[in-house]
Amino acid sequence: MAANIKPRVKVPGTAKAGEAITIKTLISHPMESGQRKDRKTGELIPRKIINKFVATFNGELAFSADLLPAVAANPYIEFVVAVPESGIMRFEWTDDDGSVYDIEKKITVA
């Protein structure tokens, strides 16, 4: 789905202060490993993967991951956070080609 790289995240809209909440993220991306050959030309298809994932909360680093070609297509990452106050959770995925895909979600701490 090279033409349609799109991030999705599942974040609870509300939480208690300090409560452990599960964050699920997924981006549509082929994660081209650089080891496959084009069936027609026989040439190696160049590597093109999401190599970095970063989550911040109100501008502060909350979680990150370095990814290699052994991560499956449409990379899925799930982790746990606890936030002290209401704010914006921001997610960024960095592509080998330099593109950065991002999405933001608000968490309201009641």
Binding site: G18, A20, S33, F57, E60, L61, A62, F63, A65, P69, A70, V71, A72, P75, Y76, I77, E78, F79, V80, V81, A82, V83
Partner: peptide, 12 residues
Amino acid sequence: MNPESRASTRIR
């Protein structure tokens, strides 16, 4: 900010 050092993904 991570109360647990735990993460999931899908691999090849």
